[in-house]
Simulated scan of single mutants.
Amino acid sequence: MAINPLFPYPLYLVISEQDCYPQSWLHVAEEAILGGVDIIQLREKNETDTGFLEKAKKLKQITDRYGIPLIINDAVHIAIEIEAWGVHVGQNDRQPLEIREKYGQRLQIGWSLEDRAQLDSKQMAAVDHLGVSPIFPTKTKTDTITTWGINGLCEIRNLTEKPLIAIGGMNLDTSASAWLSGADSIAVVSAICRSKNPRERSAQLKELLT
């Protein structure tokens, strides 16, 4: 499958300090980039606002060094403050149209697709890419409505031209099938963050997508 020019980032790392423990999460991020990760999202669900901002600044120094886009999960104000590439929001966060109206084109906007009805939402006009979540059940994200599976991903691919990021249970065994079923990017958490060699694991995953 060809790289989508609208979202030319096939290997997408979602990272948090907790998901990398006991390894240094910043070390994991840099090693993952060296292994082939194309884009990184910082997701810190249990961090204070001040703590999230400090982590975002530290990660941005690394992503800027390597020319890697950085996405901030939920916290639009932090994404704006550090001049992140984008923000990713869910159904219960600030809505895409509100973000676009306030900040224009300063942020790429990703939106979590939790049910098919969202594809008919007026919010889609402000969405740059969709996170199809989860493809498979995963311990790193439990507050979800639909487990899509590969068949669900195929169905969504036929219903929208928006870039699709597959997330949830993505690893060496599942990533290729999601990629071949129409995902434009594979978002990985544990498969890289829990790896003893995140650079090597990232390279292995990237090889499946190229």
Score class of each variant (00 low, 15 high):
R65W: 09
A75G: 01
A84L: 02
I109A: 13
E81L: 11
G110S: 09
Q91F: 01
V76W: 14
G86F: 08
M124K: 03
Y66I: 06
L107H: 08
R100D: 04
L107G: 03
D74P: 15
V89N: 07
I72P: 10
G67I: 01
I62C: 04
V76I: 14
A79I: 11
L107Y: 13
I82T: 04
L113M: 06
I72H: 08
Q95R: 15
R94T: 14
I71A: 08
K60E: 04
W85I: 06
N73T: 06
K122G: 03
Q118G: 07
Q105K: 15
D93T: 00
S112Q: 08
W85Y: 15
I68P: 00
L97F: 00
N92L: 13
I68N: 03
A75D: 14
E98R: 11
R65S: 13
L70F: 09
I62P: 00
W111P: 03
Q95E: 05
G110A: 06
S112Y: 11
D93V: 06
G104K: 13
R116I: 08
L119E: 07
G86D: 05
R106D: 10
L70H: 07
A125K: 15
E83Y: 02
H88T: 00
P69D: 14
G104L: 10
P96V: 00
L70C: 10
V76K: 12
R100V: 12
